[in-house]
């Protein structure tokens, strides 16, 4: 009588939230911290890049710990954004606005990352301070980067809040309220680090 339930959707959704935090979120923090070395000058940044380049099996690590989970999170995220409804116009409570913003920033980040990768990682240029400096010297690219940093750090920080609920970590209302504040602090700090580094790159080496 009882049909066997398919858990495929459940597993795909849980993998999506997990991928967003564990490989992708951690990589975001690592990436922002590497960029922050630019505030100490071109030499410090180039040295940080060299340290990353010295990681053994770098292409393997990059593919399995960044590219694969990022692609999954991005593609499945588009599906999530598509099957979500949007009613924050009718119900403008804070959490519902954040629900809408999470999906909007996700899509902005999706577009941002594709262009960002095309102009850096897959541009054929060596990842040096000078390469970044050349890019951000263009005001349009600079502001595009600002939007991308703010959107991606918001998406990550607010995603941490809902990750904690999806995995049953924060159950009570008080716990959820506190993590909501913590997530906004994480957003401001990470966005600050990112924007600060970006401004540093505008100075010639």
């Amino acid at each position: 009588m009882a049909k066997a339930q398919s858990h495929a959707e459940f597993i795909l959704r849980r993998l999506h939230t997990l991928a967003g935090v564990v490989p992708v979120g951690l990589f975001l923090i690592e990436h922002l911290l590497t960029n922050a070395t630019a505030t100490d000058g071109a030499a410090a940044f180039n040295q940080a890049v060299a340290a990353i380049q010295s990681i053994p099996l770098l292409h393997f690590v990059e593919f399995f710990f960044i590219f694969l989970p990022l692609t999954y999170h991005a593609i499945f995220g588009l599906y999530v954004a598509f099957v979500s409804g949007y009613n924050s116009g009718q119900y403008s409570w804070r959490r519902n606005l954040m629900f809408t913003l999470q999906r909007i920033t996700g899509i902005i980040t999706f577009v941002f990352i594709i262009y960002h990768l095309a102009t850096t990682r897959f541009s054929g240029n060596a990842p040096t301070y000078n390469m970044v400096h050349q890019l951000v010297s263009n005001p349009a690219y600079f502001w595009f980067m600002i939007v991308g940093i703010v959107a991606s750090t918001f998406h990550f920080a607010n995603g941490l809040w809902s990750f904690c609920i999806h995995w049953g970590i924060t159950v009570g209302q008080r716990a959820q309220r506190i993590t909501a504040w913590v997530s906004m602090v994480v957003f401001v700090v990470l966005a600050g680090i990112g924007v600060d580094a970006l401004i540093a790159f505008t100075h010639p080496a």
Partner: peptide
Amino acid sequence: ERLEALMGEGGIQECGNAQNCVQ
């Protein structure tokens, strides 16, 4: 049995934490 049903199609994973329900 209830947990299996909640993990099934249209189950708990579809919640996006917009939290309008509690309001």
